[in-house]
Structure formats: structure tokens, C-alpha cells
Computed example of a mutant assay.
Amino acid sequence: MKKMKKIVSVVMILSVVIACGVLNTPQVVMASQKSDALSAYKVFLKENKWDEGEAGTLSGKYFGLKDLNGDKIPELIINQGENKKGKRAYAIFTYNAKEKYVDELYCSWLLDECYYNSEKKYIIDKATSDVSEELRVFKITKKGNYKDVMSATMQNYDGKYTSAMVNGKKASYKKTKSKIDSYLEKAKLIKTPYKINSKNIKKYVK
């Protein structure tokens, strides 16, 4: 009887150990991918240049790290402009764990602002000029892919917005403005607080 109890106890202990191992495996994999991503970002930032095809090679001035899709692995955000309103120009990079490289996900050609709505996990790229307001709303999937939500242009004539285009089609300005405002209501500016240099790369990319 005592021998049977010992066997049962050993089986129960092994079951708990195996169960804990299974439960912790995703966390271990995630931690490993995060570590790999940060290591890759360090190398990328030290080189600080990326190819934009016909536009040539670009580089940045400031950077930040933020998880933009909820997978616990931060994206790398590079600011090509200045940390001032109307002077920013964002490029967003993600880590491709399968191929093990830093992949450009999005590059804003305009000097504008990018906001992040953590509730919907939407990124809102907003550019305002004297004649129009242009917005692109998108998200990053858990697999690290770009997914378009909406693109909108609102025309400003004589100091008054009168029309809108959403995904290439004419739309009501009021409805478009209302939808965009709902996205921006809980959104915060995506910050790039660190100047790109070896000291900050070592200090903050970890």
C-alpha cells in the first residue's frame, strides 16, 4: 500500500512538472523572441540606414520602442525629423522572428504625427496642411504584417473643411471627422525620446 502511494505521488509530481513546462513554454519562446528582436534592433540602429528604393537610403535622428500589436515584443520606431509638432517623420520596424531580420513596416513621407490607440491597437498617421488633412489608420497584426483600416483626406477651402475622401471614395465630412475623432480620442502620440547614438542604444535597447 505504501509502495502504491509512493508511485501515485511520483506520478502526480511528474504531472505537475510537465504541466508547468507546457504552460511556461510560450513565455520562454516569447522572451527569446523579444531578446532576439532587441539584439537585432541594436545592430540596425548602429548602422542607422535603410533602403527606400527610388527614394534612396534614409536614416533617423531619434528612436523609441513600443509594442504596437500586443505580442509583448516592441516595435522599433524611428523619427527622421525632430521631436517637435509638425516636424516628425516616422518609420516603423518590426522583427521577423522566422527570418531573423528587422523589417520595415511603414514609412511616413510627410512631416506629421503618429498616434497609437491602445484599445483598438490602431496607429493613426496624421498630416495637416493649409489645404487638407490627411490620415492613414492601420494596425500591425500579431504576425507582424501591415493591415490597412482606412485612409482619409479632408479638403479645406477658405478656412472650412467641406469634403472628404475615404479609401478613394467620396464620403461625408461630418461622418469621416466623427470616426477619426473616435480613433484619436483615446490615442496618444507615439514618442521617440532617444537620440540615436551608441550611448542611448546601449542604455535603452534592452
Rank of each mutant, 00 (worst) to 15 (best):
M4S: 11
K6F: 08
V11C: 05
I13Q: 06
I13G: 04
I13E: 07
L14Q: 04
V16K: 02
V16F: 14
V16A: 12
V16N: 02
I18N: 05
V22M: 14
T25L: 14
V29C: 01
Q33Y: 07
K34M: 02
S35D: 12
D36V: 00
A37R: 04
K42C: 03
F44A: 07
E54W: 05
E54M: 10
G56V: 06
T57Y: 12
L58C: 08
S59E: 11
G60F: 01
L65S: 04
I78Q: 04
G81V: 07
E82P: 02
E82L: 15
N83C: 06
Y90R: 11
A91M: 04
I92Y: 01
F93R: 13
T94N: 01
Y95K: 08
N96L: 05
N96V: 07
V102Q: 06
D103M: 14
L105F: 13
S108P: 00
E113Q: 15
Y116L: 08
N117Y: 14
K121Y: 15
Y122G: 03
I124R: 02
A127N: 14
R136M: 09
K139R: 13
K139V: 01
I140E: 09
T141Q: 06
T141E: 05
N145D: 15
S151M: 08
A152S: 15
T153I: 15
M154F: 06
G159N: 09
K160H: 07
S172Q: 07
K174T: 14
K179H: 01
S182G: 01
Y183M: 06
K186I: 05
L189V: 15
L189P: 10
K191E: 12
N200S: 09
I201D: 07
K203Y: 02
Y204L: 00
